[in-house]
Simulated assay, not measured.
Amino acid sequence: MELDEIRHAISDTDQQLLSLLAKRRQLALAVADAKLAQNKPIRDQKREQELLVSLINQGKPLGLDAQYVTRLYHVIIEDSVLQQQAKIQGQLNGTHAPAVRVAFLGGQGSYSYWATQKYFTRRAERIIEQGCDSFNEIVQAVETGHADYALLPIENTSSGSINEVYDLLQHTRLSIVGELTHPIAHCLLGLPGTDLSKIRQVCAHPQVIAQCSQYLQGLSQVKIEYCDSSSDAFNRIKQQQDPTIVAIGGEEGGQLYGLEVLTRDLANQKDNVSRFIVVARKPVSVAKAIPAKTTFIMYTGQQPGALVDALLVLKQHGISMGKLESRPINGNPWEEMFYVDVFANINDYAMTRALEELNKITKFIKVLGCYPSEDIEPTQVVTN
């Protein structure tokens, strides 16, 4: 076969694969209805393990190695689980809509933009995008009814917690209704033909700069310019048309502005992932079939052992804690508010009792939201 013929055959095969993947997704959604009717949990890791072993064995005579099959189906299984969760949550809360208005940081091409697309394409036919210049503006858009949802980055594996967002949660009446994690791949981007040895300015969001601090320390005589978002940085390069000015951001976002990649993998950590939360004016109920998280804040006071006593309440009720974050209380020097993530549904008996007890021993407690957990840990299989 000639090269063009081979490429044409590959394209035909890819089209068939896409059609089969779409069919598989529809079948996975039908499974969600069946599980809900039988009151079964969405995730069945024993079934997943059996499926992976079977697929690995089927792939061997076809020349497909176990690692290839496993990595491919981890992605497919994760998609199936998240699609099923979104469908059930939509039915329970009546939140599936033809269009949703979503406020996020930056414009098209920012990391928050891509995370918005990733989360809401499972929940609405159309996303009405509302790019904002600050976290405060994002929250206000939902509080005033100009947006239905807000998407906010809350922590990153390289730079840690985003304190400004935690502080906003302390005062808003909005509820956390969802979460997602999104891989962040930082690249140095510039105009086509940019000479790396001649750059004199790097534009990026402060969080991006923190996540790439080690790389930036190696650049001498280069000015760091803080931007409102990655898309803002891209737009500055496009508008100024100066080959000595570059931006840090995602490759896909940079392409929207006609920029090309100069260097990849700039983050301090190899696995650079951001966690985002979704907030809305009303809380949601989480179906029993779906793993849930509950986030709350509490002020324990400054008496010795107060925090330990509060955490013991969670332990006594068998509630696992995912995160504990402290933030200073504005106007109260040396006093702190604690943000707590737990793996529990707020309607579970154990969680209800735990909150009742915490109300008695803390000076202040506020539930920020109960929402579906999107921590989809890949099912592991042992192969020979």
Rank of each mutant, 00 (worst) to 15 (best):
G59V: 10
K23D: 14
Y113V: 04
D232W: 04
Q170Y: 02
T300E: 09
E164F: 03
P291Q: 01
Q58W: 08
K118E: 15
I346Y: 00
A247K: 04
K118A: 15
A37L: 14
A185D: 09
P304N: 00
Q255P: 02
R7W: 13
A66L: 02
Y68S: 09
N359M: 07
I88T: 10
H182V: 03
K23Q: 14
V69K: 06
P291D: 06
R47M: 12
I184K: 07
E129K: 15
R173G: 09
R43V: 15
I128F: 03
R7E: 08
A34M: 07
T244V: 05
A141W: 04
C203M: 01
M321R: 02
A141C: 14
Y68G: 01
K87D: 03
K293R: 09
I245P: 05
N332K: 12
L62S: 13
N163L: 09
A37G: 10
G331H: 08
P372D: 06
E357I: 01
Y149T: 11
D167Q: 15
G258L: 04
F364E: 08
N345S: 13
E260Q: 11
E2M: 08
G301R: 05
T13H: 04
L20W: 12
I10Y: 13
D242R: 04
I76F: 13
L29G: 10
L20H: 13
A9R: 13
L188S: 00
Q130V: 14
Q239V: 08
G369A: 10
N384G: 14
T295W: 01
L52M: 14
E357L: 09
P243S: 02
P328A: 00
Q316L: 02
K223A: 07
Y371R: 07
I346M: 05
E143R: 07
G63S: 08
A350K: 10
Y226F: 07
S320C: 12
A289F: 03
Q303H: 11
G253L: 09
G318D: 06
G318K: 00
D79F: 03
L259T: 02
N345Y: 02
G305S: 06
I224T: 11
Y166W: 09
D265K: 11
L92V: 07
P192W: 03
N235E: 05
V165I: 10
I128Q: 08
Y339H: 10
I6F: 12
D65A: 04
N39G: 10
E377L: 12
G318V: 04
G331Q: 08
I209D: 05
Q217P: 00
Q45S: 13
G331C: 07
L307G: 09
A267Q: 06
Q170I: 03
I56A: 14
F276A: 02
C212T: 06
G258F: 06
A99M: 11
D148A: 09
S159T: 05
E260M: 02
S230W: 05
R173N: 14
V139Q: 04
G258R: 03
G145T: 11
E5S: 14
I290M: 07
A247E: 00
V202E: 01
L92K: 05
H182D: 05
W114Q: 12
Q201D: 01
F135Y: 15
I184G: 01
Q85T: 09
K223T: 13
P333Y: 04
S158H: 04
K363D: 10
G322D: 15
Q84M: 15
C227H: 03
A32V: 07
A350P: 02
Y339K: 02
T295L: 01
L314S: 05
I128V: 14
L18R: 11
I184N: 11
E374R: 15
Q201L: 08
V367F: 10
